[in-house]
Design a protein around this nucleic acid. Structure first.
Lengths: 205, 205
DNA sequence: CGTCGCTTTGACCATATGGTCAAAAAGATA
DNA sequence: TATCTTTTTGACCATATGGTCAAAGCGACG
């Protein structure tokens, strides 16, 4: 009768600990480069104990990725056709940049997955993601036709927002190396730069 | 007396074959996720035979990365202060985009390395790369002061060029998934979009 | 306190993986 | 053709890795 086992406090805590450790390891080494032992060590658990909570390495990875794309797209969903065009877009850029600053591991995990061919989430990319983007692209086009923003290819506009914001998480090492010791937080300047960029590009001439 | 052994034709061919195969595998799976057997199989060689040409897996990886950053930066080196500002910058963007189109594996290899913390090339990043960027940043600032382009943060300008162009190689799967079946080559539109973007951002108001 | 189910672990296993080595095969050279 | 060097390979090895299992530890609850 599939007796519903309650989720104990220990289970909740350990699952969370494992996922956090796995995020550390997977985002840094990619799926193939990560080992269960590393994750277990990072989580402070024995390997069999870890495998008591997640049956396989794949299961941990899937648990991390599942929902990540969804969370990642929340800021885009928040872009409303009723708002002022430029502020709506700039708010989206800013929220994406904040996510790069506050959740760099998630960003890198996602980047790793995509670079490696997105074996696990390709269906979501051409399904849910594509639908959402198509829908929001119409809004951009609408705004452009009304002359409220300059005309741009809306799909590539989204690509550029993703690329520019995620760059500060994924290529953090490079950004810091190039900026040098003097700069300990690249994000304030990044925000100014990106705001300027999108404002100049989208302001109708 | 360290008799200089000549490099035979067979050696040349096999080294090239191995590096090409390794590029396939490393760019898709990252260093940790790649196996010597996969590389050997892709190259059509036996594993011991492969290890006759490169002593270790690391050696293959290093051989690939060594020089890659250098090649990668050639287009930036070509940016001359004597030229017209906007065309110089647009030419740089265009050449970087071409590299993403023609050498996506190299781009992904590089991305993998950076995302994973650049263990092998961090010194180059804060050495050669940083110097070159600082030098070119001065040119950008000079142009801005002369009123020939709009004022922007030059370092972040370079970040944006790298990020936007490499995105089309590294996130190719996502780009194609979002654009759908109808688009079989995203690059022409990308070029138009990026040209527009940088023109609008950099044209003095 | 005793029982029962949840949690943890040491020992273990099969396979994968990076790498070695001696010997065979294949060229080059004379 | 005989000799010497370069190239190739089958067999092998130590370690790493993903995963299993039976048994022990532990906590909640009657």
């Amino acid at each position: 009768m599939n007796e519903a086992r309650p989720v104990t406090r220990i289970q909740q805590k350990n699952r969370a600990t494992i996922l956090d450790a796995a995020l550390d390891v997977f985002s840094l080494r990619g799926f193939g480069g990560a080992t269960v032992d590393q994750i277990a060590a990072t989580a402070g658990l024995s390997k069999p104990n870890l495998l008591y909570y997640f049956p396989t390495k794949e299961a941990i990875y899937e648990a991390l990725l599942g929902g990540l794309l969804d969370t990642w797209l929340d800021p885009l969903r928040a872009m409303k056709p009723s708002g002022e065009p430029l502020p709506e877009i700039l708010a989206y850029v800013q929220r994406k940049l904040e996510m790069s600053r506050d959740f760099p591991r998630e960003s890198r995990l996602f980047a790793n997955e995509i670079i490696q061919g997105a074996p696990l989430i390709e269906s979501e990319l051409s399904g849910a993601l594509r639908s959402l983007v198509d829908e929001k692209a119409k809004i951009i086009n609408q705004w452009a036709e009304e002359g409220r923003i300059a005309r741009v290819n809306p799909h590539h506009l989204f690509f550029s927002i993703w690329s520019l914001t995620q760059h500060y998480a994924d290529f953090d090492v490079q950004v810091r190396a190039v900026l040098g010791e003097g700069v300990d937080d690249p994000f304030p300047e990044a925000e100014i730069y990106l705001t300027t960029l999108f404002t100049r590009m989208l302001t109708p001439s």
